[in-house]
Design a protein around this nucleic acid. Structure first.
Length: 464
RNA sequence: GGCGCGGUACCCAAGCGGCUAAGGGAGAGGUCUGCAAAACCUCGAUUCGUCGGUUCGAGUCCGACCCGCGCCUCCA
């Protein structure tokens, strides 16, 4: 049984997709006005874990992630540079696709862009007007919240109380009630607009997601993910629009990822603790170390990013890498040891079971490390035979289908000059010239190559 | 003001009423090694923010309080 914490009900629920064996997943994508920061990637990696787990469990997953290339921020950005919106957003869109690849995030099936779905949005807004959920004021269209009694159910927000906390309404448009939100914004001087049946203008931010999600996934979606900060008002508004328009349940399971903070404080440019993914990669951070760090804290818990935590994640990940390395480079005695095989099976079962419990990644990783310790113990006692060695490796790679933290098995070769140095050191060792041998070892270590002398000969590994 | 999250060893972190409180990192001692590295073994919280309560039994449920953080405005 798979259980997830559903924000809508506020408790753990058994997961049952609308259509057995198939999951329709919608995740809020990037707003392409800048390079995404590591907090964005925390959310994307949580979603990736979820998706990989579902795939691993045998579901077919239809995944849609929108790209917000039309909103206040992108418009402001394009205008400040005096270039067309599409030219402005293009480089961020390209960067996004590059980055999710380096972070090993599985691509979605569809990446709809707001600018390419204006007609879908217009159709929905028109429908909401026809059904009486929306009204026009001075050329703009607004959703009338009082027409939708279920409003506030997701965020548990009470509108009367909201009203009490006097807040400044930053929206420059006229509406009947403070909490009504714009579905369609009348064209403004210097802003891009579309000529439509609603008149010249552009869509409001919330309707973009409602239109694009239901366009590709149908009126009822199994799982909708996003950051915790999107619960109100964005997701609340999505529910209102979609359910008012389609007359049926919009989303069955709402999964929200908690924030990432840096050094215990909210990331912000003014505080100087703001990191884009690229800032870190330029500092020689291994993207997979970062992936491991972002992955290893439960998605509903606040994650504190520090460089110390990153170093800890790196060390933990290295333990797994070293384990795989050992298995791949040893020579094995033939024969078999059925107990070891059973342990591998048990590990896989336990791993899946812990993740099925609302993606309890910490418990899942504990299962992995328990397995590694057990096998390493067997290794020191020469209890692992060829048959098992293969099975163990297969198991680890199976686990990595979900974790995706093992390095690519590409450059297994070293440049000739380095190989020569290793040879030289071997010779020095043979002649008991340890001083020379140690200096070569140190020299290579500086270059990121670690040498290890084992019973079966010398081994090297790269360390970034 | 309203809504919500968290406080478990030096650090990260699981645990959702009942075996000796997972796992990782760092540390100490040991085995192996020319020395290292890796690996293995051993050690490490009589205790889970504080104080009360419920219970045969509580990090685990209830109440109060203290501390840290987030949201309520664009935001993953």
């Amino acid at each position: 049984m798979i259980r997830f914490y559903n924000t809508l009900s506020g408790r753990l629920e058994e997961f049952k997709p609308v259509k057995p064996g198939e999951v329709r997943l919608y995740t809020c994508g990037p707003t392409v006005y800048d390079y995404p920061h590591i907090g964005n990637y925390r959310a994307y990696i949580f979603e990736d874990l979820l998706k990989r787990f579902l795939l691993f469990s045998g579901f077919r997953v239809r995944h849609v992630m929108n790209i917000t290339d039309l909103d206040d921020k992108t418009i402001r950005g394009a205008r400040s540079q005096g270039i067309p919106l599409a030219d402005y957003t293009r480089k961020y869109i390209e960067a996004f696709f590059e980055d999710i690849k380096t972070m090993r995030i599985l691509p979605a099936d569809v990446y709809p862009r707001a600018t390419e779905h204006i007609p879908d949005m217009v159709r929905m807004v028109k429908g909401l007007l026809d059904k009486g959920y929306a009204y026009i004021k001075e050329g703009s269209v607004y959703f009338s919240i009082e027409k939708f009694p279920a409003y506030g159910r997701l965020s548990k927000i009470n509108l009367d109380e909201l009203k009490a906390g006097a807040r400044i309404d930053s929206d420059e448009y006229e509406k009947e009630s403070v909490h009504d939100f714009a579905l369609w914004k009348k064209a403004k001087e210097g802003e891009p607009f579309w000529e439509t049946e609603l008149g010249p203008g552009r869509p409001g931010w919330h309707i973009e997601c409602s239109a694009m999600s239901t366009r590709y996934l149908g009126p009822t979606i199994d799982i909708h993910c996003g950051g915790i900060d999107n619960i109100f008002p964005h997701h609340e508004n999505e529910i209102a629009q979609s359910e008012a328009y389609y007359g049926q349940k919009f989303v069955n399971y709402w999964l929200h990822c908690h924030h990432l903070v840096v050094e215990g404080e909210k990331m912000s440019k003014s505080r100087g603790n703001f990191y884009r993914l690229r800032d870190l990669l330029n500092k020689d951070v291994d993207p997979l170390d970062l992936r491991f760090l972002l992955l290893s804290t439960h998605y509903r818990k606040m994650l504190n990013f520090t460089f110390d935590n990153l170093a800890q994640a790196k060390a933990a990940r290295q333990r797994i890498i070293d384990f795989v390395y050992e298995l791949e480079h040893r020579t094995w005695a033939s024969g078999s040891e059925p107990q070891v095989s059973a342990l591998a099976d048990k590990t896989l079962t336990e791993f899946t079971k812990t993740l099925a419990d609302d993606l309890n990644i910490s418990a899942a990783l504990a299962v992995v490390f328990d397995f590694i310790r057990e096998i390493n113990l067997g290794l020191t006692r020469d209890m692992i035979k060829k048959t098992e060695a293969e099975k163990i490796l297969k198991t680890i790679y199976k686990l990595d289908e979900i974790l995706a933290i093992l390095p690519e098995k590409k450059d297994e070769n070293l440049p000739a000059e380095i190989l020569e140095k290793i040879e030289l050191r071997q010779k020095a060792r043979k002649e008991k010239n340890f001083k020379l041998a140690d200096s070569i070892r140190e020299e290579l270590r500086q270059m990121g190559i670690i040498l290890e002398d084992t019973k079966e000969g010398i081994r090297w590994k790269k360390i970034k």
